[in-house]
Write a protein that binds this DNA or RNA. Sequence first.
DNA 1: ATATATTTGACAAATGATGTCAAGTAAATT
DNA 2: AATTTACTTGACATCATTTGTCAAATATAT
Lengths: 110, 110
Amino acid sequence: MMSSKLIQMETVGQIIRAKRESLGLLLRQVASHLDIDQAILSKIERNERKPTKQNIIKLAEILKLDEEDLLVQFISERIAYEIADEDCASKVLKVAEQKVKYLKSNLVKN
Amino acid sequence: MMSSKLIQMETVGQIIRAKRESLGLLLRQVASHLDIDQAILSKIERNERKPTKQNIIKLAEILKLDEEDLLVQFISERIAYEIADEDCASKVLKVAEQKVKYLKSNLVKN
DNA sequence: ATATATTTGACAAATGATGTCAAGTAAATT
DNA sequence: AATTTACTTGACATCATTTGTCAAATATAT
């Protein structure tokens, strides 16, 4: 039996907009909670600007989204765009994983 | 039987310095080939400055290192530092891989 | 039509990336 | 030990990117 996993390839912006609208919140309401201009939030939702990590955390809060999930989407999206044009993108990710493990194992100090 | 892979966790800077010295080249010689001040190269080798992608390409050339290998080390190092402090680093990399695949499959259009 | 919500673009400020330069230190040579 | 050669350091300059403000333009809903 074949199991197929359907990957939902929504951007963080799309996730945010969808959830905001489903909650009936206005840009200005959400934006003021994040302490940014609604223009920026508008652009974030349309992938015209990148949110900061703090933006993401506050967005998860007000939109009742799981913070870690949203952060994972956000950071992985940033990385994916960063390396998508490299031939060796997938090798890069594998090596990065080893380096992360190494760094974490030495994170005792500092 | 257990196979263990020893991961060499040299930084790009260390790789470059080691190879430059083994070739008996001076900072100033290599730097001039990269068209940068030797002070920058010195800092790159000691991980005090980040090289540009162009720097890496020229370094591979003059130091007779494999360009793709060096680029992979360089980019993965950048990414590893970027996310090493996240709890969800390894989840991030897995999701990033999916996103990259998705982006590449849609890379037909621009 | 009017009011409300969103989008757009010009601009500003802060931050980060990238480089120059000269003076300081370290290492090797005479 | 003095000199030369190599490397390091820090102050500074320049430029690009990020992050934000604001007001006018557009779209949507009453």
